[in-house]
Design a binder for these strands. Structure first.
Length: 835
RNA sequence: GCCCCCGUGGUGGAAUUGGUAGACGCGCUCGACUCAAAAUCGAGUUCCGCAAGGAGUGCCGGUUCGACUCCGGCCGGGGGCACCA
C-alpha cells in the first residue's frame, strides 16, 4: 500500500468508475425519500473559476451526504448559455457565438469533471440548445394565452453606435459601456411579463421561506416595495379645460400642509402644457438631461416650472400652484404628488427654492405646535396641528380619517402602490431565445403555431455591422402570417436570459422530448430542497424564478408555489492584490519576480481586472481535487468570503495525506492481529460525538465546523493506541470525510478491503448511548468569576455540587472569609457562589 | 439619505436557550529525525506578570448571580436600495 495518496492517478480512476456505473444518476423510481440539491448553473464564459469550485463543492458535499443517508438525490448541472459575452466574442474574435459557447461548455465540463462532483450528467442541458429554448417558447405562449404577456411602448437605453438596447447596468455615466457613446432614451415596443400581478403573493410568499437568508428576503421585500396610501385628485380651476390631477401619497394626514402640486416631466399634464408653450417644452427637455448615476442624482438641483393652479379637495377656496418638477417620477404612483414641505425633505428643498409656504401640521408635543420648520422636515411621530378637523389626532388616526372622508366624498381612495414594475423581456440581440411571435400588418402580433416550434436562430449571421443581426438577416424574419397567410415579419427581439434561468430547475427534474416538463414528474422532485449560489442573484434571478413558478401554477401547468425551499448564498473567493509603483496591477507571480517596489493591495474578489485570479486547474494538477475541495470548505464560514492562500491549500494537502496514513496503517495491520485487546470506550465516545457533530454541521451547511470536527477526530485517532475501537473509528472517519474528499475516501475504502463504493455506503449512525457524557466538568465561580473547575458525575444533585464547590480551596481563598449569600447551581454546568 | 449585516489572539474563525472565551486551521517559537534541507512527528502560542494573580470579545453605559451573546448610545467596516412621494 502506497505511503502517499496520489491524486494524479487516483482521481481520474474513480471519476471514470463513477461515470461508468452511473453512480450519481437520480433514479426517480421507488419510494426512497428524495432530495433535490442544486447550485446556480454557470454561464459558460470560458473556464471554471474558484467561485464555481467553492459553490459546487458545497452543493456536492450536501448531495453526497444525502445519498449516504439513503436519499434518491437529484444533483444536476447545465449551462446558462445565452448572453452578451458570446456576441462580444463574435465581434472581437470573429467566431460564431454558438461555436464559442459550445467550446467553452466542453472546456468547463471537463474541468468540473476533474473535481469529482457527484452530478447526474445525464440531465445536462444548455439553454442555447433548441431542445431547451423551444420549450421555453411554448411556455411563453402559454403565458401569453393566459394574458400574462403583453406588449407596450417603453423607454429603453439606446446605444446609437452599437445600435442596441443596453441594460441599465451597461450604462456607465450616461455612456454605453462598449462604445462610449452617449446613451439615448428611445421608445420601443417591448414585451412584458405581468410580474406585478403577483406582487402580493411574491411578497407574502417570502414569509414562508424560513430556510432563506433574512438578508435576501429583506432585499426582495424592498424591491417589491409595497406602500399603502391614498390616491386622490386635485380639481383644476373651473375655467380650465384640463382634467384633474391624480396624486398618490403615503401621508394623507398631512393634507392641510400642502403647498403645491408637482407632476413629472413625463406626465400628460406636462405634455399638454408643453403643447401650449414652447418655454414649457424647453423646460421638460432640460429635466430629461443629466445622468442617472447615484452621485448625479444626489447633487441634482430641484427644478420646477409653474404651469397652473388646482383646488384643494377639502377647501374649494384654497388654490395651490402646479409645477412640473424634475424629481417626480412618472412610473411610480400616479406620476404626480402634492408637496408638503413641513414633513418631506424633498418638498421642503423645493418650497424653499421657489418661495412656497411651509406649514407644520404634525408636532411631537403640544408645546411644539407652532414651532417653525427649519432646514429639516419633520418626519417623526406626533399629533396633527393646524389641520382643522384633524387637529389632535395621531398621524395614524388622521390617515384613516382622511381616507374615509375622501372615499365618502368621492375624491380619493385608500390604495396600495408597488415599486415593482412589470418585467420587460425584449432584448434586441441575437444570442437569445427568439420570441415566438409573428407581426402581421392585418392581424397584429400573432403567436407562432405550436407545431412550428422551436423558432430556431439562423446560423448564417453577420456581426460585421453593429445592431441586431436578427433584424438585419435577409430572409429569417420573412414569414407568412399564421392566421391570414399574408406576408408578415417575425419578431426579431430575443428573450432576456433571465427567462432561461427562470425554469431550468424544472427541466432538470423532468425532460420529456415533447413538452417543457411532465407535471407529475416535476412535482415529485420540486421544490429544490437546497439551492446554492451567489448573493448577487438575490433579487433578479430569484425573484423571476419565483414569479415564473407561480405563473405556471396559475395557468395549471405545475402545482408548486415556491421553487426553492432552502436557499444559501455563499461568499466570494478573494485574493491579495498587487500593484507596481505605477499602479499597474500585477499577478501574484509577477509580484514575486518583480524587480521594482511592489505594493501589497487589499484582499479583493478574484477578478481579471485586478489580476488576482487563481485558475483552479493547475491547482488541481498539483494537489488533486480533494485538497482543493477541502480548502474550499475549511477556512471560512461558507456565507463569508474565503481568502485564497498558498499556505491554505498546502495545509489541505497535508490533511488529505494524514487521513491516508491512518487508513493505510489500518489496512496494513489487517483485521486480526490486534483482536482481543479490548474496546476503547473513551475513543468510541469521541467517535460517536464526531458522527453527530459532522452530520449536524453538514445539514446546517456549516462546512467549516464539520471540517474542524474531522480535524479533531483525526488528531485523536493518530494518538490512540491500536484497538478494535480504533480500527472501526478509522473506517468511520473515512465515511465522514467521504462527501468532502471523495477520491481519497474511495481509495482508502478499497484499500481497507471494503466492498462497493463509499459514495453509496451508509452514513454512520451515532449511538445515543455513547453521546451521553459520564463525567462532566463543572465551572465554579465566585461572584461570576471563574475560580475552579471540578469533575462530577453527570446528573449530580444540586446539593452535592454546591457542597463540592464550597469545599474547594480556591473558592475558600476567593471568598476571603465572607459567607455565601446565595449559590446558583446549573446542573452539569456550573456553580456560582455570590458573597 | 433610508434599510440591513458585521466588529473576538499575529491570522481565518469556534463558543445550543445568557453559564469555563479563543475549539479547529494557518502562521510563528522550541525540540526530534537529518551531513543538511524538504517532508513528518512532539511541545508551546490572547495580553501583562518569574509567580500568585490580574486584564480581556470595537468604545461608553445598562439589565443580570453571571453578558461575545440581551438593551441604549457612539465609533469603525461591509452590503442593498435610492428624488419611490
Amino acid at each position: 500500500m502506497a505511503a502517499r495518496f496520489n491524486p494524479l492517478e487516483a482521481d481520474a480512476r474513480w471519476q471514470k468508475l463513477w461515470e461508468e456505473q452511473g453512480t450519481f444518476h437520480a433514479s426517480g423510481e421507488g419510494d426512497r425519500p428524495r432530495a433535490y440539491v442544486l447550485e446556480m448553473f454557470p454561464y459558460p464564459s470560458g473556464r471554471i473559476h474558484m467561485g464555481h469550485v467553492r459553490n459546487y463543492t458545497m452543493g456536492d458535499v450536501l448531495a453526497r451526504y444525502r445519498r449516504m443517508n439513503g436519499f434518491d438525490v437529484l444533483h444536476p448541472m447545465g449551462w446558462d448559455a445565452f448572453g452578451m459575452p458570446a456576441e462580444n466574442a463574435a465581434m472581437e474574435k470573429k467566431v460564431h457565438p454558438g461555436e464559442w459557447t459550445r467550446s467553452n461548455i466542453d472546456t468547463m465540463r471537463g474541468q468540473l469533471k476533474r473535481l469529482g462532483f457527484a452530478l447526474d450528467w445525464s440531465r445536462e442541458l444548455a439553454t442555447c440548445d433548441p431542445d431547451y429554448y423551444g420549450h421555453e417558447q411554448a411556455l411563453f405562449l402559454d403565458l401569453h394565452e393566459a394574458g400574462l404577456v403583453y406588449r407596450k411602448q417603453s423607454e429603453v437605453n439606446w446605444d446609437p453606435v452599437d445600435m442596441t438596447v443596453l441594460a441599465n447596468e451597461q450604462v456607465i455615466d450616461g455612456r454605453g459601456w462598449r462604445s462610449g457613446a452617449l446613451v439615448e432614451r428611445r421608445k420601443l415596443s417591448q414585451w412584458f411579463l405581468r410580474i406585478t400581478d403577483f406582487a402580493d403573493e411574491l411578497l407574502d410568499g417570502l414569509g414562508e421561506l424560513d430556510q432563506w437568508p433574512d438578508k435576501v428576503r429583506l432585499m426582495q421585500e424592498n424591491w417589491i416595495g409595497k406602500s399603502r396610501g391614498m390616491k386622490f385628485r386635485f380639481d383644476t380651476m373651473p375655467s380650465d379645460e384640463t382634467e384633474s390631477i391624480q396624486v398618490f401619497t403615503t401621508r394623507p394626514d398631512t393634507i392641510f400642509g400642502a403647498s403645491f402640486v408637482a407632476v413629472s416631466p413625463d406626465h400628460p399634464f406636462a405634455a399638454e402644457a408643453a403643447n401650449r408653450s414652447p418655454a414649457v417644452a424647453e423646460f421638460i427637455a432640460r429635466c430629461k438631461q443629466g445622468g442617472t448615476t447615484a452621485a448625479e442624482l444626489e447633487t441634482a438641483e430641484k427644478l420646477g416650472l409653474e404651469i397652473g393652479e388646482v383646488l384643494h379637495p377639502l377647501d374649494g377656496g384654497w388654490t395651490l400652484p402646479v409645477y412640473i418638477a424634475n424629481f417626480v417620477l412618472m412610473d411610480y404612483g400616479t406620476g404626480a404628488i402634492f408637496g408638503c414641505p413641513g414633513h418631506d425633505q424633498r418638498d421642503l428643498d423645493f418650497a424653499r427654492k421657489y418661495g412656497l409656504e411651509v406649514t407644520r401640521v404634525v408636532a411631537p408635543s403640544p408645546e411644539e405646535a407652532e414651532e417653525p420648520i427649519g432646514d429639516e422636515a419633520y418626519t417623526g411621530p406626533g399629533r396633527l396641528v393646524n389641520s382643522r378637523f384633524l387637529d389632535g389626532l395621531t398621524a395614524e388616526d388622521a390617515i384613516r380619517e382622511v381616507i374615509a372622508r375622501a372615499e365618502a366624498e368621492g375624491w380619493g381612495e385608500g390604495t396600495t402602490v408597488w415599486r415593482l414594475r412589470d418585467w420587460g423581456v425584449s432584448r434586441q440581440r441575437y444570442w437569445g431565445t427568439p420570441i415566438p411571435i409573428v407581426h402581421c400588418g392585418a392581424c397584429g402580433p400573432v403567436a407562432v403555431p405550436r407545431d412550428q416550434l422551436p423558432v430556431v436562430l439562423p446560423e448564417d449571421i453577420d456581426f460585421e455591422t453593429p445592431g441586431n443581426p436578427l433584424d438585419r438577416h435577409p430572409t429569417w424574419s420573412e414569414v407568412d402570417c399564421p392566421d391570414c397567410g399574408a406576408p408578415a415579419r417575425r419578431e426579431t427581439d430575443t428573450l432576456d436570459t433571465f427567462v432561461d434561468s427562470s425554469w431550468y430547475f424544472i427541466r432538470f427534474a423532468s425532460q420529456p422530448a415533447d413538452a417543457p416538463f411532465d407535471k407529475a414528474e416535476a412535482e415529485r422532485w420540486l421544490p429544490v430542497d437546497q439551492y446554492i449560489g451567489g448573493v448577487e442573484h438575490a433579487i433578479l434571478h430569484l425573484l423571476y424564478a419565483r414569479f415564473w413558478t407561480r405563473a405556471l401554477r396559475r395557468i395549471g401547468k405545475l402545482d408548486v408555489e415556491e421553487p426553492f425551499e432552502g436557499l444559501f448564498t455563499q461568499g466570494m473567493v478573494t485574493h491579495l492584490t498587487f500593484q507596481d509603483s505605477d499602479g499597474k496591477w500585477l499577478t501574484p507571480d509577477e509580484a514575486e519576480s518583480h524587480g521594482g517596489p511592489v505594493i501589497r493591495g487589499r484582499v479583493e474578489k478574484m477578478s481579471k481586472s485586478k489580476r488576482n485570479t487563481v485558475d483552479p486547474e493547475p491547482i488541481v494538477d498539483q494537489y488533486g481535487a480533494d485538497a482543493v475541495r477541502w480548502f474550499m470548505l475549511s477556512d471560512s464560514p461558507p456565507e463569508r468570503d474565503l481568502e485564497w492562500s498558498e499556505a491554505g491549500i498546502q495545509g489541505s494537502w497535508r490533511f488529505v495525506q494524514r487521513i491516508w496514513r491512518l487508513a493505510a496503517e489500518e489496512a496494513e495491520r489487517g483485521s486480526s492481529t490486534w483482536l482481543g485487546e479490548g474496546d476503547d470506550l473513551a475513543l468510541d465516545r469521541k467517535v460517536h460525538r464526531a458522527i453527530a457533530a459532522v452530520g449536524a454541521n453538514i445539514e446546517a451547511l456549516a462546512f467549516n465546523k464539520a471540517v474542524a470536527n474531522l480535524y479533531e477526530l483525526t488528531s485523536t485517532l493518530e494518538k490512540a493506541p491500536a484497538s478494535p475501537s480504533r480500527s472501526r473509528a478509522v473506517e468511520t472517519l473515512i465515511r465522514l470525510a467521504a462527501p468532502m474528499v471523495p477520491h481519497l475516501a474511495e481509495e482508502a475504502w478499497s484499500a481497507m478491503g471494503r466492498d462497493g463504493l463509499i459514495a453509496q455506503a451508509e452514513w454512520p449512525a451515532a449511538d445515543p448511548a455513547l453521546l451521553v457524557e459520564e463525567d462532566v466538568t463543572i465551572a465554579v465561580q465566585v461572584n461570576g468569576k471563574l475560580r475552579d473547575t471540578l469533575a462530577a458525575p453527570k446528573g449530580a444533585a444540586k446539593e452535592a455540587l454546591e457542597e463540592m464547590a464550597l469545599a474547594s480551596e480556591k473558592v475558600i481563598r476567593a471568598l476571603e472569609g465572607k459567607a455565601p449569600r446565595k449559590v446558583i447551581v446549573v446542573p452539569d454546568r456550573l456553580v456560582n457562589i455570590v458573597a
